[in-house]
Amino acid sequence: MIGELIDGPLWYFSLVVFIVGVLLRLFSILRAGLKPDLSPARGGATAGALRNLISRSIPRRDVATRGRMVLVAGYLFHVGLFALLFFAQPHVDFYAERITGFGWPALPYWAFIVSAEIAFIGLLMLWLHRLLHPVTRLLSSVDDHVGTGLVFLVMLTGCLALAQSFEALRLLHLFLAELLLIYFPFSSLMHAFTFTFSRSYSGAVMGRKGVNA
């Protein structure tokens, strides 16, 4: 009964909330646009935007030394999560069955687990850093902890359901993933999409000013 609800209607509901919510938020950002810049352009805005989009992935030298742990943990978490979210065999099968209709090559089991381990190391380190560093502790709102906690729980239940032989564990994992999807558009988890806007907008502004930033 509950299982059918989680597997069927709730899944489609959460997917709709996720897609509509993300599109609405992105649309509102696009509509807001940039303030008109009346000064004569000193450089190309598009080039600046593209440059910034990529260059911001590489940390500045002083950031790389002062916050090395956060940097390393951040990369571990995001790379690991990306790999296991899109290239784990069970996930690929799920997407192929429910969304895309076609599959793609998945990671072998051991690589899937290694990416999960990497993601867990990163996430735990980042969350602990958030809790222990006095400044990030103050800066963090409830939203940050809920978002981190939900991602952690989804990953943890996924790891507990690795045997893929107990329906209840799969449903628990799916249920938490659905909660995450519903929560996603209304939280700072949106950075998964909005990072492109923030980077390219500031890149465009700086590029137009002819500043290499």
Binding site: I113, A116, E117, F120, I121, L124, L156, C159, L160, A161, L162, A163, S165, F166, A168, L169
Partner: peptide
Amino acid sequence: SLLASASKEGHNLFGPLFGV
């Protein structure tokens, strides 16, 4: 059995993390 399976899989995955 559900709990034990979850424990076993979790234990296997988190084990290497303790090594790190």
